[in-house]
Write a protein that binds this DNA or RNA. Structure first.
Lengths: 93, 93
DNA sequence: GGTATACATCATGGTGTGCTGATATCAGAG
DNA sequence: CTCTGATATCAGCACACCATGATGTATACC
């Protein structure tokens, strides 16, 4: 899940989708990447439930789903909280 | 930065360090990975400022730094917030 | 001193994964 | 119906990156 956010092009796509829904041609234009590449990444994001698909005639609009992202953000916060709580419980070798 | 959290073994190391500081031998034992592998990942995490190093004699203790993780968690929350705010600003082709 | 243990570094190899070009599909315009 | 443009899928390639074994360094214990 985090792995999906780790790729540079996917990160650009996600950042763009955070500014509002867009169709594939928008993403191709604005990222400068080739269309099959963008399409492939969008497929991964869709299968992971990170984006929703809305076909409109010839065009396919993608929308970023905030819930999935907030879930992983919350997991990271919880991780940081655990680290703070256990900062002094050093275990002996 | 997110990329560092994406690797499976690094994720296990980080999760372990969230339960308290540990030295390399602990991490090698508890992850089952080979020592040079663990050591290499720890180097990356250290260079990125995700963990702090505390040498104690022969042993080297590593401690997870919560600030870096919280920073990226906050970025993800902000991303989700932007997605919510712009959910209806669909741009025409 | 010598030995053993913890750890780091290096060179090598294998594999996952992203990128590309070609092709298929499908909707709309004419 | 035909043609064009938008998108999806597939096969092949290339590169990055993780894992491993060997080796080096340093500290503690005898």
């Amino acid at each position: 899940m985090i792995r999906l956010l780790a790729d540079p092009l996917r990160a650009r796509i996600i950042n763009r989708l955070a500014e509002g829904p867009a169709c594939t041609c928008h993403l191709v234009d604005e990222t400068g990447a080739k269309q099959p590449n963008v399409s492939g990444h969008l497929r991964l994001l869709r299968r992971a439930g990170l984006v929703a698909i809305e076909p409109r005639g010839r065009f396919t609009y993608y929308r970023l789903l905030p819930d999935a992202i907030e879930t992983t953000a919350a997991q990271l916060f919880e991780l940081a909280g655990r680290a703070r709580a256990t900062a002094e419980s050093r275990r002996a070798c």
